Amino acid sequence: MEDVITEAAPPSRLLEEDLNNFTQPSPLLPSPFLLFRHPQQPLKPNLLIIAISPPSLSLFHKFLTPQTLTASLILPELPFSNPNKHTLDFHSLSSNILIAAVRSPIPDVRAYAVADVLLSDKIQPESVIILDSIKPMNHRGMLSSDEAVAFKLESFAERKKVDGEKLLDGLEYYPSGSVVDGLGAAILGRCQILKIRAGLCVSWPQFDSSVVFLLKDLLRGLGEFDFGLSDDEVLKFGRSKDHVFQSHLYI
């Protein structure tokens, strides 16, 4: 006779998706919202730069001051004890250029919700540049911490522009078969839906002063930036924290 206590339970006659019908659905997370420093009309910059990667935040650090702060994007599900941990801050570089600084990672499950609020009726840019990092597990090919590389992806509206007019002119396209996910991909997808000119730059290593130099040269071509960074200031960003990584992602 079988021991009903120690014997493994028989397979369920219900499919796993059927079993989920008996569990309570997870509560919906509240929508992110924008908090403006002063009441004003919708922001309509010629260019919105979204700094997600650590090197891009280092590059723009001198512009990210309380005096230039225009608005913040709030994730209401997180505590308000430290606003810098859960806000995406908008800073006005000029009347035509707005910088969005992502100071801490946005969870992937919230990326599309953040992108919807970021590009809404309150913020309507003519063009968008997104500065993100390459995740090694998403890259098809070889990556080394000794060499700085950057690639681009574009919305259809940007891809129609001829060379010399592109936002990220001079960069090669992200290798076929490689993947981009998270907030950067969500914002690029939102730009595609809204038919906004947008370029997504992904760089590697994720932490390295050489990438700061690379981005500095890339954005200098836009002709409206004066970073005022000396080589010594850029080098304060430090050497790479990324270990040597070799990726073989094939789809």
Rank of each mutant, 00 (worst) to 15 (best):
Y174T: 10
K122T: 12
D108K: 08
R220E: 01
I193F: 11
P83L: 13
F60G: 07
D169W: 03
R239W: 14
M1I: 14
A51D: 03
A113M: 09
L119S: 08
P83M: 07
L143R: 02
V149S: 01
L194H: 07
G170I: 14
V234I: 15
M142V: 15
V109S: 07
S104P: 00
L88W: 02
G170Y: 12
L229R: 08
R110P: 02
L215S: 07
L28A: 01
F156E: 05
S178T: 14
N84W: 07
P25T: 12
A111S: 08
F213P: 00
L34P: 04
E154S: 10
F225P: 02
F90H: 04
F225G: 13
D132W: 01
L43I: 15
S247Y: 08
A185R: 03
L59P: 05
D181Y: 03
S56T: 10
T87L: 05
L215R: 05
S120K: 01
N84L: 09
F151M: 09
L75T: 12
I106W: 00
D169R: 08
L78C: 04
N82H: 10
D208T: 09
A150L: 03
P54N: 15
P54K: 15
G182H: 06
V179W: 00
R239T: 01
L28K: 06
A198M: 05
L19P: 02
R140K: 02
Q67R: 00
L43M: 11
Y112F: 06
F22Q: 08
F63C: 12
P107L: 04
I193H: 00
S127R: 08
D208K: 03
D121I: 10
T70N: 02
S58L: 09
Q206L: 07
P10H: 06
P125I: 15
N46M: 10
V212L: 01
V114M: 06
K236F: 15
R220I: 12
I193A: 13
